[in-house]
Design a binder for these strands. Structure first.
Lengths: 225, 225
DNA sequence: ATTACTATTCTACGAGTAT
DNA sequence: TATACTCGTAGAATAGTAA
């Protein structure tokens, strides 16, 4: 039995809610989830069931998969190892240099569609303007951690005859100044991190173009970074 | 590249401290860590280095392996997935029925060698006597989670011409009653969980033989379960 | 539609061994 | 002692299909 591959499979099922309720899942979907063929995914499910890690209920259209207690403790053991590695790591720190953006931030932040969503998520009214931080390659790569684990997700909306895209948002702070980071869903790779705050950050931090700034980002909604 | 197997390899290196300092590691040791042959372990290290996940420094006796930033974010991404699964799961709950032990608990807890270690770890003086809970098979299996992740470890010691073995200990509570669980290192499989407290638990909970009791166990030292 | 069998390909493991 | 090469092979993954 290939342990790491099984754990990965169980983790994916758990992320789809397999602890609480049975997951409706065709073998083809499962295959895509794991980057495998339909045939292998099917076999993997059979093996997991044989090892008592999942319970299956076959429908004619899809199957319903639920994780067993054995799977839960297996995943929890895994979780504890990661907790030990990242003990007390509830936040990430990004370091970047201040740069002048295209002034788009000001425009977007004044759209009611975004503004009301920000207020609801963050509990404060963003100053109309973003602070743009240019990140080094290491930090830029770590942006995917934020992208894959949104604390808040702002929905896209239609206005003025065009579409405003969705945005991922995280609570953050620069020094003692409360702020938040935003990542447009659209841009798939970028080395720029946009920061908003209830006040003008260039005054509050304070900072100017070229200054190096550290922003501490909380990974979970409602948390203090 | 086999993703899950690589992640597992990196996790093992990280658990050995590969984030902070280079890990001194022969390919044979690495092989044992992963349950693979020396040849495969060696190849795995070469592959990880080629992917830029580790930096290697070859000695003639052993090699020194250090994780790169890329590896860190890979593992952190993994950690975030588990955090999402077990959000706010800083404690585990075990359910068991009260049973009468052999009265050994009273004897052991009155040995100064244990007593002083308990006081230092927990901050309170244990009542001389343990509450023994007989767990169901599922819960008994989950005891390994505690065994593999001790919050406190009490050292073994010599006294009265014999050896008193080491013990794993976790902060816990039953209802509102503060207590702690203890697991002797010696016993490798057991379905009994021993609970100690600053007071006599049979009075404080209260409970009697055959009663079903839930104990909530914190996974980290100093935490409230 | 699905799942999962059988046949086939091919990857990845480990034995043997050179360095 | 180490590491890591070649190479035969077991078993995993996929293709093709049946149910």
């Amino acid at each position: 039995v290939n342990r790491p591959a099984d754990v990965e499979a169980l983790k994916q099922l758990a992320l789809r809610g397999g602890f609480e309720a049975p997951v409706e899942l065709a073998s083809t979907e499962f295959a895509h989830l794991l980057g495998l063929s339909q045939q292998t995914a099917s076999r993997r499910l059979i093996e997991l069931a044989e090892e008592g890690l999942i319970q299956r209920e076959m429908g004619l259209r899809k199957q319903r998969v639920r994780l067993t207690e054995k799977a839960r403790s297996l995943l929890q053991a895994e979780h504890l190892q990661y907790q030990r590695l990242f003990a007390g790591a509830g936040s990430l720190t990004f370091k970047g240099t201040v740069k002048t953006g295209l002034g788009e931030g000001r425009y977007y932040l004044s759209r009611p569609g975004y503004k009301t969503q920000f207020v609801r998520a963050l509990g404060w009214d963003p100053y109309p303007g973003t602070l743009n931080l240019e990140l080094g390659p290491d930090d830029a790569q770590r942006l995917s951690l934020l992208r894959d684990h949104p604390a808040y997700t702002l929905q896209s909306f239609q206005a003025e005859g065009r579409t405003f895209g969705g945005v991922t948002c995280h609570p953050a702070r620069i020094g003692r100044q409360l702020c938040a980071t935003i990542l447009p869903h659209r841009t798939h790779y970028t080395s720029t991190l946009e920061v908003i705050a209830p006040v003008r950050l260039r005054d509050a931090v304070p900072c100017a173009d070229g200054d190096t700034v550290e922003v501490h980002v909380a990974l979970r909604p409602g948390e203090a970074p």
